[in-house]
Structure formats: structure tokens, C-alpha cells
Design a protein around this nucleic acid. Structure first.
Length: 571
RNA sequence: GCUGGGGUAGCUCAAUUGGCAGAGCAUCGCAUUUGUAAUGCGAAUGUUGAAGGUUCAAUUCCUUUCCCCAGCUCCA
């Protein structure tokens, strides 16, 4: 039995149960989705969490009755009449939108629904299901349409699979970066400061700095050059770039004297200005400008979510200015860069999407076609599979999005590569060709990590807060067993610090067990335990988070061990 | 922004029908000087998100507002 058929049929049973309990509810749509199904309802009263239990109970009744699903082909006008008589206005609307002369309807017991099918044979085939949550959803997903109430649920072939799925949900909850971020003292947000604005605490700032150093070096190694630009620019620049027309609702603007300025929502104009600052030759290209560029975007309040959707964030942003004939090669290099980087951070699974021209966009059709072709050719050269998102590109060009999959197989959108003919045109970018004439370069916009904020969120959830050694904000904590050995512990701290290890000391007047517990809870990879025995022989006892007590060794041996482990993890 | 739910100590959460706001952890103090995941005793901690209203009395009821959560729409 096909899982999505099962789920879709379960959605029907849920609607049937809801109709039985509250005959006044009107039905929207009820498809199967990736992890389950939902059905949209229109009802005066909001559903309460207790209602889910009532619906589930009723569903179990319907399943027990084992009604067969019966398909019937009906003339369109008869179907309209039927659903009008049932006061199902949304169904009537759906039928009227169907181009064919006849539509199919499904019956099980006393329940009738418009449906393309297919369905399972009878309701009794549903063995394991659960209703999960209630939420609002616009009819047809359009913001100006009325909002319906959506009930989410899931179904599996067996009870065991359902339980596994629910366990995965619980596991995901435990890894929530907002909770771990607080526990591990990585970051916080403050109501007083404003929402979507991140405050990095010492541990989080440390982690971010480590990521920044890594990614900056990788860019330098790959021939990028560092640039740094201002955070506010005159609105004239944004008018010229098109952001003012196509992105204004997301921009923060303000006045200085009589001039309007905007806080940058993107870094492109800064890099473009560097390009334009002098005459460029074809010999200079490709020219790659990199910046850890902090941007501010006025995201709608409802979309903000921990580190994943914020209003102020820093991108590992670069713009590659190149010749048309260089574009494909450069895109391929960026794809390699993305995959290498994600691998280094412990992600080895991805999905790729190609987004094409949106309705609101700038530039000539033939340029868009060429840009899309460059992206597609690059993906083909890497023999990477991808899906197409029709009309989801940036306003200035099509893009490839590379989503990473974390330890729980959840997708995170981080890297993106955009091919742009439009901004070079708008800013009149030029280079001198071999023949001495002026030509227009192409611009690639790309980020590897995406934003440091979102990437850190992904890292936290991927590793459940237990960062690998090379990323751990504190790699090692020194735990003196009693205050008598504090001095020796201090010397060890000096030695490890001098060796470049991120080390801290727990000199509190607490028992060893307590200090170990705290270090475990803080997910610190190594503990150095020091008592009078260690002091007398000039050694340290090492406890690893992964392996437990691994015995005594010379400080130099420990330093070597850390070095090796860090190097192994990076590459 | 929209629909629904929610905001109580630094954190996690209690508080019958409106009737003195409470616990664990964290913090501070004292004792203890400890050998691989929580030592004991004691103390302090609140404009119950904010403003207004109803009431003898509001954490509790009403209004407005800010913020958070689950989704929708939108995105790095």
C-alpha cells in the first residue's frame, strides 16, 4: 500500500469524523504531505486541542466500521449541484475550476468528498494514525483569502513506524537550537531590543568567530579577495539596483539631512562600487569580492524563528564578476566550494533546487534564459540532480539553492548561487576586452554558509549542541579536585592556552562529581582532572565526552591528541 | 502581516469558584577539600510582559499594546 494513498485516505476519515461531530464545518482541501496529511476546515468556533482527541475517537469508530471507499464518476454540473446541496462552498469552487466535463467523487459510509483518488480499499486498512496539531492556513495559500483551520496528522502502515516517527519529533524538539542556544549560553534575544535581533554570548561569539575564520581562510585559499563596505547607503543606490522597487517592503529606510538612506538588505551594491572604482580589463576577470556582510531585512513579525529567520544577520557573501564564457566554470567552482564546506562541517547529504524567473523581476528575457542555462549546465557537469522551482528566483536573476540535510534528515536552506545579467547593466559595469572595446561582465551572487545565524542554528541541531572538537567554543575544561591543586591546575591552563587550545578552568569549591556533571551538561569535549596524584607526577587525567575516562598522560601528549583530532575533523 | 495558543523569580514550572504569589535548579553565605554525571545547612530573589478598566479585593475578568509559540504567506 502506498503511504501517501494511506495518508490521503486518513485525511478523508478525519474530515468525515469532523463532519460527524460538527455538521456545520465546511471542507477545504485535504492532501497527503511529506510526513503525513492535513485537512482544512471552515468553522466559526476555533478547534481546541481536546477536539483532536474527539476527532481521533470518532475516526477510530469509522475505521472499525470498515467502510469501503467507492469511486464514482459524475458530470460536473451534477457534482456542483450535489456539493451545493451539502453547503460545501469550497468544494463547489474547486469543481468549477476543474476543466474536464466530469469529476470523480469518493464515498465511504455516509461521507462524500470530491477527490481525484486513489484511495485504500476500506477504512479498516488504517492501522496507525495520530492527529498532531491545529493551525491557520489561507484558502489556496493566498494571503488575501479567508483563513481556514488546518488539522495536521500522520499515518503509517504500522503502529511501530508511527511510534518511531513520534520519537523523531521528540528528538527534534530536544535538539531545538533555541533551547540549546540558551542552555549552552550561545545567544539570546531580548524583547527590549527588538525581535529578530541576536545577542551573541561569549560561547556563541566564540563559535561564530571560529566559523568566520574558517570560511574567510577558505575564500582566500580559493582566490577571493576581502572587501568591507558600509552598512547604510543612500536610497539612490537602491533605486538604481532595483531593490527600491522590488524589495522596499523589506528595507529599513531613514533620513540624514535631506537625503534618504537605507540600511543594506544585501551586500551587492558595495561590491559593485568596488568593481566600478577603476577601469577593469578582461585580464582581471574573474574578480571575486568576499565579505562577511551584515544585512538587515524587515521580515514580517510572524516569520521570525530563533536563529533561522532573523532581521539582522551576516552572510558569507561574495560577488564574482566574470566574462560570459567564464560563468559556467565559476558556478561549478562555487558548487564544489559549497559541497567541500558542508562536508567539513559534518553535512554529507543535500538537495538542490533551481529557481526560475519570478513575476516581479528586472532584465531581458534572453539574459534570463542564458543565466538559467549557465546554472543548468553547471549542475549537469557535476551530474547533480535538482528540482525546478518555477518563478522562485531573485528579482535580478535565477538561482541554485543547495539545501543541506541534518542528522535527522531535515532540510536547511543555506547556500545559494545566483546568476545575474541585470545589475551589471543597471550599474553600467564594464571591462576592456582584448580588442580594446568595452564589454559587460556577468555577476554571480553566492553564499556558502548562507547566514552565520542560520548556519549556526543548523549546526546546533545537527550536533544536538555537542560540537566537534574543532568547533567547540570550549574544547577543554580543567577540573581541580580540591583547592590544594589550584596552582598546578593554573600552570596546566597556561600550557594548554599557549598551545592554542580553547581551555577553561572550574575552580569552584564543588565536588568532582558535580564539576564533571556540569561539564557534561555543557557538552565540553574534554575534561582535564587534576588531583594531588597528577601534580606529584606532572601528569593530567583526561576524560573525554565521547569515551569517558581515558587515563593519565603528559600535558604534551594531550596537546598532541587535541591537535590531531582537530586536524582530522577539518579535512 | 494573518489564524489560534501563551507570557508568573536568571531558568523550568505551580497557585481551587477573584481572597496574603510558591517550588526545584541557578545565585549568595557558612560548613566541607572531596577521585570520574548533582555534599549539607542557611539566605536573598517578583511593579505576575506593559498601560488602562471592572471590583472591597485581579496572576485570575474586560480593553489596548508589546513579545513568544504552532502553522499560513514570505525567505539567507
Amino acid at each position: 500500500m502506498d503511504l501517501s494513498t494511506l495518508r490521503h485516505s486518513t485525511a478523508h476519515v478525519m474530515a468525515q469524523a469532523a463532519k460527524a461531530l460538527w455538521p456545520d464545518v465546511k471542507l477545504g482541501m485535504g492532501p497527503a504531505i511529506e510526513d503525513g496529511f492535513y485537512y482544512d476546515f471552515d468553522r466559526e468556533e476555533p478547534f481546541a486541542p481536546e477536539d483532536l482527541e474527539k476527532i481521533e475517537a470518532k475516526m477510530r469508530d469509522i475505521i472499525k466500521k470498515n467502510y469501503p471507499f467507492e469511486r464514482e464518476e459524475t458530470a460536473k454540473k451534477d457534482a456542483v449541484k450535489l456539493f451545493k446541496s451539502m453547503h460545501e462552498k469550497y468544494k463547489v469552487e474547486l469543481i468549477e475550476a476543474i476543466p474536464a466535463d466530469s469529476v470523480s467523487i469518493y464515498k465511504d459510509g455516509d461521507f462524500i468528498d470530491l477527490c481525484r483518488g486513489p484511495h485504500i480499499h476500506s477504512t479498516g486498512e488504517i492501522k496507525a494514525f495520530k492527529l498532531l496539531s491545529i493551525a491557520g492556513a489561507y484558502w489556496h495559500g493566498i494571503e488575501t483569502n479567508p483563513m481556514l483551520q488546518r488539522i495536521y496528522g500522520t499515518a503509517f502502515q504500522t503502529q511501530k513506524e508511527l511510534e518511531t516517527y513520534i520519537k523523531t519529533l521528540e528528538e527534534a524538539k530536544k535538539r531545538d537550537h533555541r533551547i540549546l542556544g540558551k542552555q549552552l549560553e550561545y545567544f539570546s534575544m531580548s524583547d527590549e531590543m527588538g525581535s529578530g535581533l541576536v545577542l551573541y554570548h561569549p560561547k556563541g561569539a566564540r563559535l561564530r568567530t571560529i566559523i568566520e575564520e574558517y570560511i574567510r581562510n577558505e575564500h582566500l585559499r580559493r582566490g577571493y579577495e576581502l572587501v568591507i563596505g558600509p552598512h547604510i547607503l543612500k536610497s539612490d543606490v537602491w533605486v538604481r539596483s532595483g531593490h527600491y522597487d522590488y524589495y522596499k517592503e523589506n528595507m529599513y529606510t531613514f533620513r540624514i539631512d535631506n537625503q534618504e538612506y537605507a540600511i543594506k538588505p544585501m551586500n551587492c551594491p558595495n561590491h559593485i562600487m568596488v568593481y566600478k572604482s577603476k577601469t577593469r580589463s578582461y585580464k582581471d576577470l574573474p574578480l571575486k569580492f568576499f565579505e562577511l556582510g551584515t544585512v538587515y531585512r524587515n521580515e514580517k513579525s510572524g516569520v521570525l524563528h530563533g536563529l533561522l529567520r532573523v532581521r539582522g544577520f551576516t552572510q558569507d557573501d561574495a560577488h564574482i564578476f566574470c566574462l560570459r564564457e567564464q560563468a559556467e566554470d565559476e558556478i561549478v567552482k562555487v558548487i564544489d566550494f559549497v559541497i567541500d564546506t558542508l562536508n567539513a562541517f559534518g553535512f554529507d547529504d543535500f538537495s538542490i533546487e533551481l529557481s526560475t524567473r519570478p513575476a516581479k523581476s528586472i532584465g531581458a528575457d534572453e539574459d534570463w534564459a542564458m543565466a538559467e542555462l549557465a546554472l543548468i549546465n553547471s549542475l549537469n557537469r557535476k551530474t547533480l540532480a535538482y528540482e525546478i522551482n518555477e518563478g522562485e528566483g531573485a528579482f535580478y536573476g535565477p538561482k541554485i539553492d543547495i539545501k543541506l540535510k541534518d542528522a535527522l534528515k531535515r532540510e536547511w536552506q543555506c547556500a545559494t548561487i545566483q546568476c545575474d545579467f541585470a545589475l551589471p547593466e543597471r550599474f553600467d559595469l564594464k571591462y576592456a576586452g582584448q580588442d580594446g572595446k568595452e564589454y559587460r561582465p556577468i555577476m554571480l551572487h553566492r553564499v556558502i554558509l548562507g547566514s552565520l545565524e542560520r548556519f549556526m542554528g543548523a549546526l546546533i541541531e545537527h550536533f544536538a549542541g555537542a560540537m566537534p572538537l574543532w568547533l567547540a567554543p570550549a574544547q577543554c575544561r580543567i577540573i581541580p579536585i580540591s583547592e590544594k591543586v589550584n596552582e598546578y591546575a593554573g600552570n596546566i591552563w597556561q600550557t594548554l592556552f599557549a598551545a592554542g587550545i580553547r581551555v577553561e578552568a572550574d575552580n569552584r569549591n564543588e565536588r568532582l562529581e558535580k564539576k564533571i556533571r556540569d561539564a557534561e551538561v555543557e557538552k565540553i569535549p574534554y575534561m582535564i582532572i587534576i588531583g594531588s596524584k597528577e601534580e606529584s607526577i606532572g601528569m593530567v587525567s583526561v576524560r573525554s565526552k565521547a569515551e569517558g575516562d581515558i587515563g593519565r598522560m603528559k600535558p604534551a601528549e594531550f596537546i598532541e591528541r587535541i591537535r590531531e583530532e582537530v586536524e582530522k575533523k577539518i579535512r
